[in-house]
């Protein structure tokens, strides 16, 4: 009988899980400053990345993934809101990644571009602060089955850093 160690050593080239095959680059949706990372945040536990720019309703909010993917767009607030209108009212673009993984982008202002769409960094709205927000920003959050995952954020970008549009934020 072979030892369990040698059996383990024989385990090679296993089935790749659907999750393992997917790796997309998350990028900044407009020229912005990183105001919260999955490590640093002010106040209570955040578990997400925030990037901000003060020019509310000026910059288009591009979907923050550098690949053609299908976004499910949910509009909960129709008006122009820059500084928050209460938790649960945020406009959302959501990407299903399979195996229960999702990536969400929140707080943008509704425009004529706000509908379900398959695209690579298209604008789904304008930079804004709908929902639970104190100013115009975009909140990016990854989860599996509703549990936040904070590890996607790149260690090479830091809080306070200025990001160009389409600059790397992390890998999802």
């Amino acid at each position: 009988m072979r030892s369990s160690k040698s059996r383990l050593a024989a385990l090679t080239a296993l089935v790749a899980l659907p999750t393992a095959a997917l790796a997309y680059t998350a990028v900044a949706p407009y020229p912005s400053t990183v105001t919260a990372t999955t490590y640093y945040s002010s106040g209570t536990y955040h578990g997400a990345v925030d990037v901000a720019n003060s020019r509310c309703n000026y910059w288009g909010a591009e979907t923050g993934v550098s690949a053609s993917v299908r976004w499910n767009v949910t509009v909960r607030t129709s008006g122009v809101v820059c500084n928050g209108n209460g938790s649960g009212n945020q406009n959302e673009a959501k990407l299903d990644l399979g195996s229960g993984w999702s990536f969400r982008q929140w707080h943008w202002i509704k425009t004529s571009d706000s509908y379900d769409r398959t695209c690579n960094r298209c604008q789904v709205g304008n930079l804004g602060g709908t929902g639970n927000a104190t100013g115009p920003h975009s909140h990016f959050q990854k989860d599996q089955y509703g549990t936040k995952n904070t590890s996607w954020y790149s260690s090479y970008t830091s809080k306070g850093e200025a990001l160009d549009r389409a600059e790397l934020m992390g890998y999802i």
């Binding site: 659907p18 997917l22 299908r70 299903d96 399979g98 398959t118």
Partner: peptide, 9 residues
């Protein structure tokens, strides 16, 4: 089917 739509569309 896999990479754009995650098999869900």
């Amino acid at each position: 089917n896999q990479f754009v739509y995650a098999g869900l569309h």
